[in-house]
Every structure is written in C-alpha cells, then in structure tokens.
Amino acid sequence: MCMVVNERRSNRSPRRRAGGGLERFLWSIPSVIVLLAAAGTAIPLRALFPGSSFPRRVPIKREVIHHPALYIVPPEDAYALRSLDSLRAAVISATPRLVSITYTFREGDTLERLAERFGTDVASIRSSNRIEAAGLMRPGMELVIANKKGVLHRFKRHETLEAVAQRFNKRPDELLVANDKPPMYRFGEGEYLLIPDCYLRFREFMVPLTNTRVTSPFGYRSHPVFYERKFHEGIDLKQRYGAPVRASNDGLVSFAGWREGYGRLVIIKHAQRMSTYYGHLARISVRKGARVNKGQIIGTVGMSGISTGPHLHFEVHKDDVPINPAKVLF
C-alpha cells in the first residue's frame, strides 16, 4: 500500500509542477510584451510561436510611469507600438494634462519639427532648455519638452514655489492649476514646473565663442605689436587655437578670405544695417554669399594676420561704422 501511495504521489507531482509552470509562463506573456515595448520594439506573438493561434492584439494594463523629468503613458495596445519616440510623441500631443519628457536631439531634427510634433512652440523649447540659437543644436543633446506653451523651471534644493512664482510674476495657486497639482503641493528637488505663457528673452547677438573673456576692449589702447596708441575697433576674445567660432546672428556672408591686418576674416551682414567681423581665424568654414544661422560655426580661432597669439578679433558695425560690441553682446 505504501508503494502504491508513493507511486501515485510521484505521478501527481510532475503534473502539478508542469501545470504551474505553464500557468506562470502564460501569465508572463504580457510582461514580455511590456518589456519589448519599453525597448522600443513590438514583436507579434505569431512571430514568437509559429503555427499557434493568438488574438491580433494583446491588451496591456494602462499605467503611468513617473520620473522627475520623464512622464510616459504606455498605450492600451503594445502591439501597435513601433518605437519609444513614437509613443512619446503620441502621448504628449494627445493628452490634455501636462506632460513633459526628455528627448535626445537627433540628426535631421529641427526645433520647428519638434515643436509641431509635441504640440508646443519653438520659443517654449528654447526657453526651457536655455537654447540661445538654433545653430547650437547638435545630435545627442538632451531636451526637456512639455505639451503646453511656456518655460519649464527645474526646482533646486530648498527652492520654494512661492519664490519661483514671485520671480516670474505669477501666483502660486495659478501655477499649481497649470501643472495639474493639488493645493498645498510641494515640489521636490529636480521636479519641473511649467510657467505658462512665459518665455526667456535672448539677446539678438550672441558671443561668438564659449568660455571666453575679453582681453582687449573697444577704444584707444597701446598696440601690442606697434607699441603706439591706436583705436581698437573691436574686442579681442581669448580662446584656444582651433576653437569653433560661431555666427553672432543670422545673416549673409559678404566676405570670406584674407585681409591685411585681420588675416583670415569673415564678415557677415545682418538686418538693420548691422554687420559683424571675425578676424585672425585659423580656418574659414563658409563662403561669400552663404546664408548662416545664429550659432553656426563659421571658422576656428587662430592667429593669422597681425597677432601676438591665438584669439578672436570681433567687431560690430552699424552703417559701416564700428560700435562697441559690448553694447550688443553683454
């Protein structure tokens, strides 16, 4: 009798284990689809199990994933998902509530296309990411984009809603409503707050170099080569040899070549009878007649012409008369 009982138990046990394993496997299928969707690819079940009969769509439980700078709402149907970017675009443009995401700028992207895709405007994207010029955009840059117009402010440590509201001339309760937050909500470090209908104002002309300083100002000075008092018609900006030089504003290249004293020189004509000069370049990247955008690379820092070391000689002209560049840059 004991042998029979033991035999029955040994026969039942594998069935229970097999049944439990199959049940766990079937229940894990939605999880597999969710993982595939999160990876940016949806694979039909027919491709995983050839010859089997499955419904055309696998419903996924709707949920919201929260992150300090990322809010993603997975779709009702993971089968329709083709890429994470398409999911982000669909969610941020369709949902009525405030949604913000992080987006990696790619080759071929423009701020205009991103604004249209995510239901916002270029000014909001530029303000939220402190983009002084479209010419500064490069593949790989991470942007924070919201589906409503305004500037996104990221909270710092110990920063309060009242202080931010006062800075932007808004009421705290008004900002809470605009951000779909309950009364008395407290923002934590790293959270984003949308300031609706508010934009950052950027200067019309930008400094053509990054991480630079003025080594010789506009006006009379003792010339470093001729050792005599001469009028300096621009400013000298210090930077390493070969550093990129960018267009200070949108315009048309009216000169690109060699000129006595300046060495390799680029002149760009802008609106309102303004023009900018970029002298002592090591290399010129544009040609005469080319249209350039603000922030676009036009050459590299050098020491061509009459120069004692690598730097950029920068001039601003109004009606062909030199003016102090500091008035339009700083």
Rank of each mutant, 00 (worst) to 15 (best):
A271S: 15
V328K: 14
E204H: 12
N211H: 03
A282I: 03
A256H: 10
A115N: 01
G188H: 03
A243Y: 10
S52C: 11
G119D: 00
P310H: 00
R9E: 10
V164S: 12
P196Y: 01
H313E: 03
M141E: 01
L152T: 02
G302L: 14
R291H: 11
R16N: 03
R117Y: 07
E112C: 07
Y185S: 03
E174D: 12
T210C: 04
T120E: 04
G305A: 08
W258E: 14
Y185W: 04
R82A: 13
D197H: 04
P172A: 05
L114A: 01
R167H: 10
R46F: 10
I92R: 09
E112F: 09
F231A: 11
R117N: 05
A146V: 08
K238P: 06
S285K: 12
I268D: 10
D236S: 04
G263W: 03
R186Q: 04
G119L: 00
V122R: 03
V321Q: 15
P224K: 01
K269I: 15
N11L: 14
S248A: 15
R186H: 05
Y227G: 08
V328A: 06
H232M: 13
Y185L: 02
A133T: 07
S53M: 08
I131A: 02
R221T: 00
I29Y: 02
P172K: 08
F187G: 08
Q272L: 14
A69G: 09
G309L: 02
S86P: 06
K148R: 03
Y79E: 06
S86H: 12
S222Q: 12
P183L: 07
G242F: 04
V225N: 00
I101R: 04
E189L: 12
R46Q: 11
F54N: 06
P182W: 03
R264P: 13
A42H: 10
P182T: 05
H223W: 14
E7S: 15
K149H: 01
K327M: 09
G261L: 09
F314V: 10
P224L: 00
E23Y: 14
D173E: 15
A146W: 03
L161P: 11
G242A: 05
V164A: 14
G309T: 05
A326M: 15
G21A: 04
S124H: 01
L22N: 07
E162F: 12
R283T: 12
V301R: 02
P139Y: 02
Y71I: 13
T210K: 09
L176M: 05
A146G: 04
R157T: 12
Y103C: 00
T210S: 07
T215G: 10
E191A: 14
R273P: 04
V151K: 11
H270T: 12
E260M: 14
G251D: 14
V321S: 11
A165G: 07
G261E: 11
A282P: 04
V286F: 11
I43W: 09
G150S: 03
R106W: 00
D109F: 01
P96Y: 04
R46I: 10
A89N: 09
L152R: 06
S285A: 15
F105Y: 00
L81Y: 08
S124K: 01
A165H: 10
D77C: 09
S28G: 04
R138G: 01
E204A: 15
V177Q: 14
